[in-house]
């Protein structure tokens, strides 16, 4: 019941932060980072906003499919009944927040892997050439 609204809110906040980072970014520094196989914070934030907005849009379709969201006011069918509204808010605070946290955690893992990717690639190449020599 409208649990996708919590990741949508996080997507809005993250998009605003990303705009701020873009405004302060230096294209020359970003080009240097790209050459060394690293990623700028603008790129890393675009992964998070992509997952949040994309996930929210696709989950919105699921909620429309199940009749929990309609395309006219009040848009959320649970708002028609106070008892359903309480359940909806409970779901948003548990499942909705859980969704936002889980996607953010997955993004943190992606960022950690991306930051260490050049070192991992070097280690794999060194391992391969040692194998070929042996």
């Amino acid at each position: 019941m409208a649990c996708f609204l919590v990741p949508t809110t996080e997507a809005i906040v993250t998009s605003i932060v990303k705009k701020g980072v873009e405004a302060k970014s230096d294209p020359a520094a970003e080009a240097k980072l790209a050459e060394s196989g690293k990623f700028s914070w603008k790129t890393k934030l675009s992964w998070l906003t992509g997952m949040l907005w994309g996930g929210a849009a696709l989950l919105c379709l699921e909620h429309i499919w199940h009749g929990e969201v309609v395309l006219y006011p009040p848009f959320l069918t649970a708002m028609n009944d106070p008892a359903d509204t309480v359940i909806m808010l409970q779901e948003m605070s548990t499942v909705g927040v859980g969704m936002a946290v889980f996607v953010t955690l997955a993004w943190v893992v992606m960022v950690l892997i991306a930051d260490h990717a050049p070192a991992i690639r070097k280690a794999l190449q060194a391992g391969k050439s040692a194998e070929e020599r042996a």
Binding site: G50, M51, G55, A56, A57, L58, L59, V95, G98, M99
Partner: peptide, 17 residues
């Protein structure tokens, strides 16, 4: 890929719920 991954992760949480 990010769209589908984001949605799949969210549905995972739904599954755990």
């Amino acid at each position: 890929a990010l769209m589908y991954a984001g949605a799949a992760l969210m549905w995972c949480v739904d599954g755990f719920a």
